[in-house]
Computed example of a mutant assay.
Amino acid sequence: MPIKSIDGCIGCGTCVATCPTDVIRLNPKNKKAEIMYPADCQICHLCRMYCPVDAITISPEKSIPVIVSWG
Rank of each mutant, 00 (worst) to 15 (best):
M1K: 04
M1A: 06
M1W: 00
P2E: 08
P2T: 06
P2Q: 07
P2N: 10
S5C: 00
S5P: 00
S5H: 00
D7K: 15
D7E: 15
G8T: 13
G8K: 13
C9D: 02
C9A: 01
I10M: 03
G11K: 01
C12N: 11
G13H: 09
V16E: 12
V16S: 03
T18M: 12
C19M: 03
T21Y: 08
V23K: 08
I24N: 06
I24Y: 06
L26C: 09
N27Y: 09
P28C: 07
P28W: 00
K29Y: 10
K29D: 15
N30K: 08
N30H: 10
K31E: 01
K32S: 07
K32Q: 14
K32V: 07
A33C: 09
E34T: 14
I35M: 03
I35H: 05
M36F: 04
M36P: 00
A39G: 14
D40C: 01
D40P: 00
D40H: 04
C41H: 08
Q42E: 12
Q42L: 10
Q42H: 06
I43V: 15
I43D: 14
I43R: 10
I43M: 09
C44H: 12
C44V: 13
H45K: 06
L46M: 09
C47T: 08
C47W: 03
R48Q: 15
M49F: 11
M49P: 00
Y50H: 09
Y50P: 00
Y50M: 09
C51N: 09
C51E: 06
D54N: 15
D54P: 03
T57K: 15
T57D: 15
T57Y: 11
T57P: 10
T57R: 15
I58R: 06
I58L: 12
I58C: 10
I58F: 04
S59P: 01
P60E: 14
P60S: 14
P60V: 13
E61G: 02
K62Y: 11
K62E: 14
K62F: 10
K62T: 06
I64F: 03
P65G: 08
P65Y: 07
V66I: 15
V68T: 15
V68W: 05
S69L: 09
